[in-house]
Amino acid sequence: MALDEFLADRGRATTTFLQHAMETYLPAATAERRRTHDAELLADSLAGHDHHHEIPIFVCNLAFPTLPCPLHVFEPRYRLMVRRCMESGTREFGMCLPNETSTGGFVDIGVMLEIRDLRYFPDGRCVVDTIGSRRFRCLEKGQRDGYATARVEFLTDQTVPPEGMQELQTLHDSVHAQVERWWTEHFRGQLEKRDRVIQFYGPMPAVETSYWTLPSGPSWLWWALAILPLRRSVQLDILSIASLKRRLRVIGSVLNRLAQPPANPA
C-alpha cells in the first residue's frame, strides 16, 4: 500500500509479536500508555463541548462562517493536530489570525473549521477541505505538542424580538441589494478577478429561510465580508459582532463609502 493511501485510510495494523512482548515484559508501562491514549482520545472528542475542554487552534488566517477554507498542511505540529481531529471523530478545529501582541501569539476571535475532505501526499503533507462553522472567543490559551489550544465560548447572534423583525428584514433586504450592486459594478470588466473569487468562495449564497434564527445569520453577509476590500482588523471586528442588525449596518456603511466617487484633488 502506498504511504498516501495508508495515511488516508487511518487504519493501524497491530504487530502481534511486539504487542505480546510489551504486554508480557512491560505490562505496567503498556497499560499506563493505553490509559493515557484513551484519556487523550476522550479529551479530544470533547473538544469545544464546554468551557473546560480545549479546542486545537490553527494559527494561520481569518476564516468565516459557512465559507470554504482549503488548507495545505505541511508543518508536523499541524499534521499531528489534524490526525487527532480525525481519530477523535470531531473533524473540526479552530482557526485564528496570528498576532504577536496578543496572548499566545494569536487573536481572541476565531471560527471553527469542519473537515469535509482530506487528501494526503506520500511525504505526509495533506490538503484539507474545510468549511467555517461556529464563531468563538478565546477565554484561556494554551499549547499542546507544539500547536496552540484554547478554552472558548461560542458566539451566537442575539435573538430578534418580534417588534424588531420588520425593521431587521427591511435593513437586510436593503443591504443585500447593495451587495449585489457592488458585486456587479466592482467586477464589471474584471471577469478573471471575479472568477477567482467564485472559484475560492463560490457564488453569492442565496438568502436562507428564517435567516434571523441562524447562530451567525445569513451566509451571504459573510461572503460579502470576505470579498470586500477591508483591512483584516476591520473584518475581525465585524466577525465578533453578535448582532445581525449591527453587522448589516456596518456592511451597509462600508458599501455607502465605497459607492462615493473619489474626491477631486485640490
Rank of each mutant, 00 (worst) to 15 (best):
V152S: 01
W222G: 01
R247W: 10
A242Q: 13
V128W: 01
I241V: 15
P265W: 10
F17V: 13
P162Q: 15
R35C: 06
L97G: 00
V59R: 06
S133E: 09
T16M: 12
T16E: 15
E153V: 12
D195N: 07
E100Y: 00
K193Q: 10
D237H: 11
E180F: 06
R137T: 11
Q158H: 12
A242W: 01
G164P: 02
H172Y: 08
E180N: 12
W220S: 06
R249W: 06
V107H: 02
P122M: 06
P56A: 15
Q19L: 07
E185A: 13
C60T: 14
R134Y: 03
H186S: 13
A31V: 01
Q143Y: 11
E5V: 09
H172Q: 14
Q166S: 11
Q190G: 02
R246F: 10
V107T: 11
V175S: 00
P162R: 15
D123Y: 06
E180H: 12
H51I: 13
S88V: 06
R151T: 08
Y211F: 15
L18W: 10
G142A: 13
Q178I: 08
L62V: 07
D50W: 03
L3E: 08
L3V: 05
D195C: 01
G11L: 14
A206Y: 07
A266P: 09
T16A: 13
L171S: 07
L46Q: 12
Y201C: 04
I55D: 00
E75V: 01
P215A: 06
F6D: 07
L214V: 05
T130P: 06
P218M: 08
W182D: 06
W183Q: 14
G89H: 05
R10F: 10
P27N: 11
T30M: 09
L118Q: 05
A2P: 05
Q158E: 14
A150T: 04
